[in-house]
Design a protein around this nucleic acid. Structure first.
Lengths: 212, 212
DNA sequence: TAGATTGTTAATCGATTAACAATC
DNA sequence: TAGATTGTTAATCGATTAACAATC
């Protein structure tokens, strides 16, 4: 129940991390935690934690702190892990197959329901319990199953075109791993670009500039 | 040749993207570009581009703009793609193998020289041209080959321990894909945490909060 | 030269941190 | 009640944008 008023991108990016830490604390049997103690563990400031959480409502209790399990559940609901968004994967090369098998989509509000590729040697393979289909079947599949999210693990040359096709078929969110900055200029389409190459390159920069 | 004075993390994170766009422009045969035109293509402001570049020196020319190839090379040198940092991969599961095959380390100042795992069924496999070795051979390998960077694709329970072992063996940079926020409290060690799960979760948030 | 566009300084904006009254 | 800790307002800090003189 967001206290309406835009939540900044900086806050949104921190939410999954709060969720993760609270999950860990739960497992460790911690029942309550103060912003001060959580800040210590997460290497943030207590102020920032209280500010962030208060974008969504007052989850704490003066003099007591936050109830770990309750807060975990609240943040989960804010993130939308209690929903189930049908998701398809386009591109079942090395990376696509690894994402399909390695990521727990269900615990993040998604469910992988279809995998597509154009390579005849890959089509028919079983990946994460699904049989890889041909891209030609994409349209029929989407019309029948109405996936809301697509994971793109395809070469950059095809990315924009495939994404636009999928938008027409009703896809509302893209998790894009191609070496291309996907930007969809329609309202109400969400894009998360993951640039692993760029990530490595920032590390290269930092290791080459240590102690300057 | 950084105009000394700290370069902010925000600027560093944008550098690989500049490098990528300039590379594309080169391929397209574009010889010169103004900050205004580049801003248009990258969806940034011209001011920001000029500010960012001037952290490292004046690469442009008044009245003309920037020479694409020259700027590309300069940024490459700033990032350190002309260096070669020997790199090892720990964990050759789905994700580790995909990273090894999918990422072009060489073009990013790194060279993959060893891959390690503990799973007997994986050891001995060829991945990205290398034979997967047992973690037990890690110490001997590092002492002989002195890798400066490690990619961690291992379960979170082992991450901190393995990282600390590697620090003792001289590793200076970690590209960490485990579901664990690695933090190394020594000076002069660089860490880049990649949390694919968190990335997906921010997308889940956004798709569930569209148009609010 | 005149026009274009940089490098750089100043203004604005947003995010983080600090402070503290409210309250459990 | 007294102590702890929140929710929230105010202060600070940093990053982005705008403006403009320098200059190719």
């Amino acid at each position: 129940m967001p206290k309406t008023g835009e939540v900044s991108a900086s806050v949104i990016k921190r939410l999954p991390r709060y969720y993760r830490f609270l999950g860990e604390l739960m497992k460790q049997g911690v029942e309550r935690i103060s912003s001060r103690e959580l800040a210590l563990r997460m290497k943030l400031t207590a102020s920032q934690i209280r500010q962030d959480l208060n974008c969504f409502g007052g989850f704490g209790q003066q003099g007591y702190g936050y109830h770990v399990e309750g807060l975990h559940e609240q943040i989960g609901r804010i993130l939308g892990v209690d929903k189930t968004l049908d998701t398809i994967l386009i591109g079942a090369g090395n990376l696509g197959r690894a994402i399909a098998s390695h990521i727990n989509f269900e615990s993040r509000g998604c469910r992988l329901t279809g995998i597509f590729d154009t390579n005849e040697r890959i089509i028919g393979l079983k990946v994460a319990g699904l049989t890889v289909m041909h891209n030609d079947d994409l349209e029929a599949f989407c019309k029948e199953h109405k996936p809301g999210m697509a994971v793109l693990c395809i070469p950059k040359a095809n990315t924009q075109k495939v994404a636009e096709q999928l938008v027409k078929l009703g896809v509302k969110a893209f998790w894009n791993f191609s070496h291309y900055d996907l930007s969809i200029d329609y309202e109400d389409i969400a894009v998360e670009n993951v640039h692993l190459g760029d990530s490595l390159l920032t590390l290269t920069y930092r290791v080459n500039h240590m102690g300057e």
